[in-house]
């Protein structure tokens, strides 16, 4: 797993209070990991801080699973 993927997983585990085994690429923040809409906003914020990127709202809407977050950040992280 890439360094970025490791960091993304760690943020999700910390912010959503879930177990590492639950954080699979297919896992949906809202359907599988118990996030509500504010949790999702916070996750995006944490990704922005950690990877020093700015994720526009229209693109943030397309980040709904662990895998989608990892691929977006692998592409955009500086």
């Amino acid at each position: 797993m890439s360094e970025i993927a490791e960091k993304v997983k760690a943020i999700i585990i910390d912010k959503l209070g879930v177990e590492a085994s639950e954080v699979t690429p297919e896992a949906s923040f809202t359907n599988d990991l118990g996030a509500d809409s504010l949790d999702t906003v916070e996750l995006i914020m944490e990704f922005e801080k950690e990877f020093n990127v700015s994720i526009p709202d229209d693109q943030a809407e397309n980040i709904g699973t662990v895998g989608q977050a990892i691929s977006y950040l692998e592409e955009h992280a500086k």
């Binding site: 906003v41 916070e42 914020m45 922005e48």
Partner: peptide, 8 residues
């Protein structure tokens, strides 16, 4: 200066 306030 980028606003990154927590939603909480």
């Amino acid at each position: 200066g980028t606003p990154r306030y927590s939603p909480f």
